[in-house]
Structures are given as C-alpha cells and as structure tokens.
Amino acid sequence: MHGEFKVPGGKLVVVDLDVQGGVIRNFRLAGDFFLEPDEALGTIDAAVEGMPAESDGRTLAAAIQKALPEGAVLLGFSPEAVATAIRRALQRATGWDDYEWQFLHPGPLSPQMHLALDQVLAEEVGEGRRKPTLRIWEWASPAVVIGSFQSVRNEVDPDNAEKYGFEVVRRISGGGAMFIEPGSAVTYSLYAPVDLVQGMSFADSYAFFDEWVIQALKSLGIEATYQPLNDIASPAGKIGGAAQKRLGNGGVLHHVTMSYDMDGDKMVQVLRIGREKMSDKGTTSANKRVDPLRSQTGMPREAVIDRMVETFRALHGLQDDELRPEEIAAAEELVRTKFATPEWVGRVP
C-alpha cells in the first residue's frame, strides 16, 4: 500500500507498507522533508512496524513520537503527518493526479443559482457522472450568504440589507456569513470525491484543498498562510475563509470566498458584526476598504483569478468545461424548491 500527504506549508510525506495478519509490515517512510539525526528515519520505520492496521492517527503519531531519540529535529513534517500518510495508505486514498480536473467559469449568476449549483455539482461528482471540478463564481447581484447553521436575525440587519439591495441566502455548508457585491470578492468551489481526503482529519482536509491557492497568492507577492480551521490570511490580516460539506454519496464540496475590495462601512451596516470582527477581516475602521487582494497585489480582480487558475492548471491539470443542460435544469429546480424558499433561508430564524 502507498500513501502520500503534503503537509500544508511543509513537505511531502510518503509511506509504503504491507498489511499481514492485521498488522503493518515492511513499513518505509520517505519524502522531501528534513530529519536529524539520519538514524531517526530507521527509528520511525521500526516504531510503525508491527502496529495494528486499525490503529488510529493519534495512536500512530504517539508511537512515532515516543520512539524518536532525544533532540531529534523534524523539519517540514511531524509524527502526525506520518500518521496521516499511513491512514491514507491503509484507506487507499487517491491523489490530485489520479483525476482529470475540469474547469467551470460561467458568467454572472444569481446567489440562489450559485448555491444550487454547489449542491448539484457535488452530487454529480459523488455519483461519478462528473469529473472533479474547479468552479469560479461571478455574482449577478449583492448577497449575504449565511452558513447552514447560522441564525438570520443574529447575522443580518434586515432594514439595511433591504436598503442596500442585499438578498439573504443560505448555503449547505457551515461557517460564517459572506458579504458579497459583484466584483468585490473572489469565490471558488472544488467538487471532489471523498477518496481524495481519505485518512485526513477535517482540519487537514481544509488546508489540503487550499494549498494550491496559497501557492498562487504567494506567486503574487502575498505572504499567504492557512490559519486553522478555515482562514486564509497574511500579515496584513484575514483574506478569506473556507467552508466544506461532505455528501452521503461520496462527494465533497469545498468553497472559499476571499475579499478583493469590499466596502467595510456597508458591511458593518448589513451584517451584525462589531469592530473586533472587522479587525479580524483586515481593517480597524469601518470606513476603510476591506481589500487585501487588491491592495496587496495591485492587480485587477480578473488578473488575480487568472493566476489562480494558471497555478491550479500547472499543479494538477485542468480542462475547460461548461455546465451541462441537465445540471442547469437540476439547479434551477433546487432554486425553486429549496434555496429561494422562506423555509430554507429562515430554517434557523
């Protein structure tokens, strides 16, 4: 069995092993990490050899940590990373390069249509009718997109939302509210089989899905990092946040909204958030722009998106695609029966 795990912001960990009689045999660790002393590599191999194949990640990591010689230095990886690679090998996880990734970038769509497409496309990938896909969003109108479990009245000022023309919609993933005006944000979704993140914790899978965009932002001169659980940030503050939903049919939806150039004053009027949260989003005054991508790159929004797509294509391959008529029809039906209904939007009043 073979397993790999790219440590977010770190190095690649590779393991090969057999399972004989319910225990791990012939275990070998490799990768582009740094390890001192050299002998510690054999120590890690010996620590894993003979462990029960059903051992969970915590047990594996603890055994590796206990076996390490005093003063051992692990750079770019950790015992937990080795444990993740082992669990991915045992569960026969796939990698990015095992798939032919598709790319969708349709024109502006209504907020409800975006959310319906997220559900439809994740279901299609889970059922095997669509290859794993990256989709870039374009917004036709302003919206506040609240998380699946958020309270409408706690998150949104209805009078100011109506005053400024913001529609309130609810997505199927958890997390916090998104404040969107056309051209103010960069939003993307990934639709993937759950096999791609087999053996990973939810926290690891968030960072794993967004490693490519961290690389894209760094290529634009942004000192981007991933901050657990679901934030993309730089020294200047928060850039964006991720959310994820795993479907029962084996599909995974992972989507991210990053701020390109938002109106901070309008945001605090429409969203019920205080100055502390504004500071977390990269500004100390509601009268300032929340513009990490624009101010830190000096580039048009379209150029930032182009670099993101180029980076993904270079790393994992990407074939241009279009929405299929049946996918559009299914999304339109979901808008009618779910995403545009008061029952769904207000399911947590």
Rank of each mutant, 00 (worst) to 15 (best):
E223S: 12
P108R: 09
I232Q: 04
K6W: 15
L29A: 07
N154I: 02
F339Q: 04
V7P: 03
E39F: 12
I86H: 11
F339A: 03
G76S: 07
V194D: 11
Q102P: 00
P106N: 07
H2D: 11
Y188F: 15
I305V: 14
L75R: 14
R135S: 04
E123N: 10
T187F: 10
P292N: 08
E223P: 01
L117C: 03
A161H: 05
E39Y: 11
E333H: 12
E326Y: 09
I24W: 07
V120N: 04
L104S: 02
G282P: 01
D32H: 06
M299S: 10
D56P: 01
V309Y: 05
S148W: 15
D97G: 09
F34S: 12
I328V: 13
G175I: 03
H255R: 09
L190H: 08
E162S: 14
E167I: 15
E70T: 10
V144M: 05
P69G: 08
A116P: 00
A286G: 10
E36I: 10
G282T: 02
A61V: 01
Q244S: 09
R246E: 01
D98Q: 06
A81W: 04
A116K: 00
V213W: 02
N230G: 05
P52G: 10
A286V: 05
G346P: 01
L271E: 02
A236L: 11
R92Q: 13
V290T: 07
W139D: 07
A340W: 08
T337E: 08
E333N: 11
A116L: 00
D280A: 15
D18G: 08
E326Q: 09
A93E: 03
T337Q: 09
Y206L: 12
G50I: 00
V23Y: 08
